[in-house]
């Protein structure tokens, strides 16, 4: 029971939506926000990972790192980072 409530808290962060950690291959998602301060988000923007961009997941492991394709560029997103990117289905 506690495990469940914990999980809900984790999936729905401050943007009231799910994090990248819960994305699955085969669906399209839109980025809606990045948590973790200006430094980190600035970094991601410069790399092209921006709010409103659409992406797909192609390698996935729950709780582990992920590979995503965004505008033809592939990114490896480490564990920990996946929980800071908020997304919604597009």
């Amino acid at each position: 029971m506690f495990g469940r409530s914990k999980r809900i808290r984790r999936t729905t962060g401050r943007y009231g939506s799910m994090t990248l950690a819960y994305a699955v291959p085969g669906k399209k998602y839109r980025i809606i926000g990045i948590a973790g301060g200006c430094r980190l988000s600035g970094r991601l923007y410069a790399m092209g990972v921006m709010p409103n961009e659409i992406f797909t997941v192609y390698t996935y492991s729950r709780g582990g790192p992920m590979c995503i394709t965004l505008k033809g560029t592939k990114y490896a997103i480490g564990r920990g980072m996946t929980e800071r990117i908020f997304i919604e289905e597009a």
């Binding site: 973790g36 980190l40 970094r43 991601l44 790399m47 990972v49 590979c67 560029t73 592939k74 990114y75 490896a76 997103i77 480490g78 920990g80 980072m81 800071r84």
Partner: peptide, 10 residues
């Protein structure tokens, strides 16, 4: 631990 993002080259 610093979270990481890395571009994967083709």
């Amino acid at each position: 631990l610093e979270p990481f993002v890395m571009e994967l080259p083709h």
